[in-house]
C-alpha cells in the first residue's frame, strides 16, 4: 500500500510536511535530512528535485536549487540516495519538481524509478491538468504513484472540485497568490479562504503550504486543514550549518513545540 494512504488513514490532524531541496547544502545531505526529519517528527517529506528554472519558487529555493545542481545533483543520484534512505525510514516521500525533468527522464521510466526508490507521491506544479489526464495519469495510476495538484485563493470552486477529482494524493492548498518563501502572519483573508476550502468536503486530505514558516503559522494552518507544508524556512535554517542532522532536528522541534502539538 502507498505510504501516504497509510499515513492519512492513521493521522488526520497536525500533519507536518517538510520540504527540502535534494543535494543542499551538500550533495550527500539527502539521507541525513530525511532520517532526521522523520525521527524528529515530520509526518511526510517533500523532496525537491533541484531545477535550473523553478518558476514557482522564490529566492530561497532558487538558490538552494542552484547550489544543489552545482554540487552535482542529478535524478540518478537522487534515486540512489532515496533508495538508501529507505533502509532507515518508512516516512512517506513526495517528489516535487518541474514537468520538464520528468519529460526528459521519460514519464514512465521516471515514475517507475521513483517508486522503486520508495517515492509515494509527486507534485509537478507546471503539469497542466489536461496533459496529466491525456498522457500521464495512466502511468501514475499503474504504479500507484499519488499525484498532488495545487489550488490557490484564485481557483474557482468548479476547478477546485475538478482538481479534487484528479488529485490522487493530498491537495496542496497554496496559502496566498505568491511564489514560495514569503513569510509573515496569516491574514484574516487567508483564514476565510482556508475556511471556504475546509467547508467544501473534499475527500482528499488538505495540506496548506507557501508562507508557513514557524510554529505559530503551522498551528494556524493546521486549524483549517489536515496539516501544513514548510519549505523555505527550513532551507534557510540549513544555510551555513556545520551539523545538518542537528539543525534538522532542532528545526522540527521548533515547529512541533509543546504549544503547537498540545493545543
Amino acid at each position: 500500500m502507498n505510504r501516504l494512504t497509510q499515513l492519512f488513514d492513521k493521522k488526520k490532524d497536525n500533519l507536518l510536511n517538510v520540504y527540502f531541496t535534494a543535494g543542499y547544502p551538500q550533495l550527500d545531505s539527502t539521507v541525513t535530512i530525511i532520517r532526521n526529519l522523520a525521527e524528529a517528527g515530520a509526518d511526510l517529506i517533500e523532496v525537491g528535485m533541484p531545477y535550473s528554472d523553478p518558476m514557482a519558487d522564490g529566492e530561497t529555493i532558487q538558490q538552494s536549487s542552484m547550489k544543489a545542481l552545482a554540487n552535482g545533483m542529478t535524478l540518478e543520484t537522487l534515486f540512489q540516495q532515496l533508495t538508501e534512505a529507505r533502509n532507515h525510514t518508512q516516512v512517506p516521500l513526495v517528489l516535487m519538481g518541474y514537468f520538464n525533468q520528468v519529460m526528459q527522464y521519460g514519464p514512465e521510466r521516471f515514475v517507475k524509478a521513483a517508486r522503486e526508490a520508495g517515492v509515494d507521491g509527486l507534485i509537478l506544479p507546471d503539469l497542466p491538468v489536461f496533459e496529466y489526464e491525456q498522457e500521464f495519469r495512466e502511468i501514475t495510476d499503474r504504479y500507484d504513484m499519488q499525484v498532488t495538484f495545487l489550488i490557490t485563493p484564485q481557483t474557482s470552486e468548479e476547478r477546485i472540485r475538478q482538481i479534487g477529482k484528479l488529485s490522487t494524493g493530498f491537495i496542496y492548498v497554496v496559502s496566498s497568490s505568491s511564489i514560495t518563501g514569503k513569510s509573515g502572519e496569516i491574514t484574516e483573508g487567508q483564514k476565510a479562504y482556508f475556511a471556504r476550502i475546509a467547508a467544501m468536503d473534499l475527500t482528499q486530505p488538505k495540506l496548506i503550504g507557501f508562507g508557513i514558516s514557524d510554529a505559530k503559522s503551522f498551528r494556524t494552518a493546521c486549524a483549517y486543514a489536515n496539516g501544513a507544508i514548510i519549505g523555505s524556512a527550513f532551507i534557510r535554517a540549513l544555510k551555513d550549518v556545520d551539523d545538518v542532522a542537528a539543525a534538522t532536528r532542532s528545526f522540527v522541534h521548533g515547529i512541533l513545540s509543546p504549544a503547537s502539538v498540545g493545543a
Binding site: M55, A56, F99, N100, P125, D126, L127, P128, F130, E131, F149, L150, I151, T152, Q154, T155, S156, R159, I163, V174, S177, S178, I179
Partner: peptide
C-alpha cells in the same frame, strides 16, 4: 485551441497563473 502547433506549445504553468 489548447495552444499547440503540432507537438509544440501548450500552457505548462503553475496553478497560480491559471486564472490569468
Amino acid at each position: 485551441e489548447r495552444g499547440y502547433y503540432g507537438r509544440f506549445g501548450g500552457a505548462y504553468i503553475p496553478e497560480m497563473l491559471h486564472p490569468n
